[in-house]
Design a protein around this nucleic acid. Structure first.
Length: 205
DNA sequence: ATACAGATTGCCT
DNA sequence: GGCAATCTGTATG
């Protein structure tokens, strides 16, 4: 494991880990993605976190040891991936919001036929999970286990500077500046503030 | 039991 | 920029 990352890397506080994963590479089968944008979620302390209301079947992996992957299903159709951080039980995690496909472009394109161009392949959390082929069966995978199909490689320290700002699409605590990205990288997603969805006027027949 | 909001995306105007 | 798609967790009666 020359370029692998030990568990202690993820056991640090999530606000330390989040900026340090930028430029690192997540590999799953034929596709590898260089991370360019992430968000931190800090368990019970964080009203925006899935873990805020305590442990459930869905978020159980967040409460486990660091270095595991928390994959969740949202909006009835999308999967998103996180890296569990901090001490076990803290339930903090880094949401992988965007990245650049650096290996397996052909496979990535075939998994994202609607992508306008290569820079859009992993530009967004559900898109990133899609190009990597991540889904429910990957929930709980241990990145620090050598036999895991998922690999996390430390990247060269990025030349771009790391910027911070508010998190995307959160109704609560979205204003905490816990989003981290590589300044000027074209694969970083566009910022969208929280927008309440309009209720349908009439129920479906 | 029923209602609603959600760590999103893609298609439409 | 607006809005539908689609389903699960959580709140409320």
């Amino acid at each position: 494991m020359s370029d692998g990352v030990g568990r202690t890397f993820f056991e640090r506080p999530v606000l330390e880990v989040a900026p340090s994963v930028l430029g690192c590479v997540l590999v799953h089968g034929p596709v590898a993605v260089r991370l360019t944008e992430v968000e931190a979620y800090d368990g019970a302390e964080d009203p925006g976190s899935h873990a805020f209301r305590g442990r459930t079947a869905r978020n159980a992996v967040m409460f486990g040891p660091a270095g595991h992957v928390y994959v969740y299903f949202t909006y009835g159709m999308h999967w998103c991936a996180n890296l569990v951080c901090g001490p076990a039980g803290r339930a903090s995690a880094v949401l992988l919001r965007a990245g650049e496909v650096v290996t397996g472009l052909e496979v990535a394109r075939s998994r994202r036929p609607s992508a306008r161009g290569d820079r859009d392949l992993a530009r967004g959390p559900a898109r990133l999970a899609t190009v990597l082929g991540l889904g429910g069966h990957d929930n709980g995978t241990d990145l620090c286990d050598a036999s895991s199909p998922l690999r996390f490689r430390a990247g060269a320290r990025p030349t771009e500077s790391v910027r911070t700002g508010p998190r995307v699409g959160l109704a609560r605590a979205g204003d905490r500046p816990w989003r981290f990205w590589l300044d000027g990288d074209p694969t970083v997603s566009t910022y969208r503030p929280y927008l309440p969805r309009r209720r349908s006027a009439a129920p479906r027949p």
